[in-house]
């Protein structure tokens, strides 16, 4: 009984229950929602969000927010796209197809580091800085690409294969990559010193330096990771959709990611949040996105639903803070 209670007290339990209830509710109207095929669709909707959500989660745990990840995604995808497009004569040899992956990650990391430097060195609020870099990076994407799209034929087929071919069970590589990133994030946040320090900074920014935590370095690292993961999401965007567009790619992506993270029980007051919760938040978002077309709700309502979901999650977060789902009952009583 105690074990059950301690499981129910965890915030993740609430999200898992929400996922199950949501799927059952949709399944009651449309039985085909509860099939394995549908699971595959849901999983395919989520990898980009999941990867970026891991970075965003660390940023929010450290009591910041990163609004620029959509633009970082677009910029790093575009850099790799340009590489593929002009690869013919580069130094006289063909660039291998996987070059874009480390390149995107590196470009994203640099952009994330710039965010971190501005925030940490000048003591500026992350929201304003990343609002500025959101516009700045997006503009740079237009400039380097000359406002031209990278079309399907430029993206190497091996890269596109990452989202189509599967090593096992018919599940594409891209999903394994996403869960691999989540696993790494779990190990990093729970089993390394720096990972724990991120939580310490978010819980109490004043006390953290007194405990000998190098706040500047850790914060820079967090923003760099967030940028690098957005970069990885960028190259996977090219893989998944087969094009990179200077204006569409990654635009509005930050809101989906923030929605997923906040649903996942990561507290906006910093210091609280788990990888499992974030993964569940991403999956819930994926379920919602997959259910819309089945229920005949037009795709144009997706943004509104994300917005509503963020607000609902915020209210729940406030109610459940430190109490698990049991807290909901107490408040109602």
């Amino acid at each position: 009984m105690n074990a059950l209670r301690s499981i129910l007290l965890r915030r993740e339990a609430g999200i898992a229950v929400m996922i199950v209830l949501f799927c059952l509710a949709v399944g009651a109207f449309k039985p085909q929602f509860l099939t394995l095929d549908q699971l595959r669709i849901i999983l395919l909707l989520t990898p980009l969000i999941m990867i970026a959500a891991m970075g965003q989660m660390m940023v929010i745990v450290a009591r910041h927010v990163d609004l620029s990840i959509g633009s970082i995604l677009g910029f790093s995808a575009m850099v790799s796209g340009m590489l593929y497009r002009f690869d013919i004569d580069w130094f006289g040899f063909d660039v291998p197809w996987w070059t874009g992956i480390p390149l995107s990650i590196a470009v994203g990391a640099v952009l994330g580091l710039i965010n971190g430097l501005l925030i940490q060195l000048f003591r500026l609020p992350a929201i304003i800085v990343t609002l500025g870099t959101l516009s700045l990076y997006r503009g740079m994407t237009f400039i380097i690409s000359n406002a031209k799209q990278i079309d399907r034929q430029w993206i190497p087929s091996e890269l596109k294969g990452l989202s189509q071919t599967s090593p096992i069970l018919g599940i594409p590589w891209i999903i394994f990559i996403a869960f691999g990133v989540a696993l790494l994030a779990y190990v990093f946040l729970n089993h390394t010193r720096v990972g724990r320090q991120i939580y310490a900074i978010g819980s109490n920014p004043t006390a953290a330096p007194l405990r000998g935590i190098k706040v500047t370095q850790v914060t820079l690292l967090v923003f760099t990771i967030s940028g690098a993961l957005a970069g990885l999401a960028g190259i996977l965007y090219a893989s998944r959709w087969g094009f990179v567009n200077p204006s569409n790619t990654g635009s509005g992506f930050e809101f989906q990611v923030i929605a997923a993270v906040v649903i996942g029980g990561v507290s906006i007051n910093g210091g609280v949040g788990t990888v499992l919760g974030t993964v569940l938040g991403v999956l819930l978002l994926g379920c919602v996105a997959a259910a819309l077309p089945l229920l005949g709700i037009p795709g144009t309502s997706q943004a509104a639903i994300y917005g509503a979901v963020i607000l609902i999650a915020l209210v729940i977060d406030r109610t459940v803070r430190r109490q698990g789902i049991v807290g909901l009952r107490r408040v109602r009583a």
Binding site: I127, G307, L311
Partner: peptide
Amino acid sequence: IIVTIGTLTLYRG
């Protein structure tokens, strides 16, 4: 900050 990010998405949506 976070509330108006949410309502921004909601209103535009």
